[in-house]
């Protein structure tokens, strides 16, 4: 018996496959939902491939419990690159955003791709301070406020970032906005004196 991992076929589970050949005339394939491991069966050769844990896709029939757990499981993939003390704060915020009390029935389920981009952003920017975490229409955002500047970074799936920055000065408000791939963010934020509000 061998085992390997693959992308889940169904909405919220990975598939564990076990393949047996009890005799030459019969092939038995077993696929087990749940714990994330499985195998590739090709030309009679079983080759194990690696095992990312299942991502829970956005779907209206996923409970808030499952949502909270999926978001925290995703955080665990990045936790070794983030300040230790953030985990508790992030989990508290996740519990708050997706609590029965706060949740509106017509709100979109969180997009896991957005959450992953958000976590990748946190690691990429090497921040010293955790931003406020926002959630709207299924997407996550980070919000920084520092005296006259307010920066909102909205995270879309696949490392796509949108930002809005407002600055108050001399009785006027200046608002700029844009979008860019995640890997460009450090360079782009420099034009907003990011040292002042991002790393302070």
């Amino acid at each position: 018996m061998s085992s390997l991992t693959a992308k889940p076929e169904n909405k919220n589970s990975a598939v564990l496959a076990r393949v047996r050949e009890p005799d030459r005339d019969r092939i038995v394939c077993r696929f087990t939902e749940g714990h994330g491991e499985l195998l590739r069966f090709s030309a009679g050769v079983f080759s194990p491939i690696l095992c990312p844990r299942p991502l829970k896709a956005s779907s209206s029939d996923i409970s808030l419990d499952e949502t909270r757990i999926s978001l925290k499981e995703m955080y665990s993939k990045y936790v070794m690159h983030l300040p230790r003390e953030w985990r508790h704060a992030v989990f508290e915020r996740v519990d708050e955003l997706f609590s029965e009390d706060e949740w509106e029935e017509d709100e979109s389920q969180p997009n896991m791709g957005s959450w992953e981009t958000f976590l990748r952003l946190l690691v990429f920017l090497k921040l010293k301070k955790l931003p406020s975490i926002g959630f709207h229409n299924g997407y996550f955002s980070g919000v920084w406020v520092h005296s006259d500047i307010r920066m909102t970074i909205v995270c879309r799936p696949f490392d796509h970032i949108e930002w809005v920055c407002s600055r108050d000065g001399e009785g006027e408000r200046e608002v700029t906005a844009g979008d860019a791939p995640l890997h460009r963010m450090r360079a782009l934020l420099q034009s907003y004196n990011d040292e002042r509000w991002l790393y302070d």
């Binding site: 005339d25 019969r26 394939c29």
Partner: peptide, 27 residues
């Protein structure tokens, strides 16, 4: 708090009789 069932889906290919059968159980 959170419990997820684990399902096993079994497909058997009988090469002699060219038949396929499927089973499903919560394991």
């Amino acid at each position: 708090n959170s419990v997820e069932p684990i399902h096993q889906f079994t497909t058997q290919y009988d090469l002699q009789n060219t038949s396929v059968s499927n089973e499903h159980e919560e394991i």
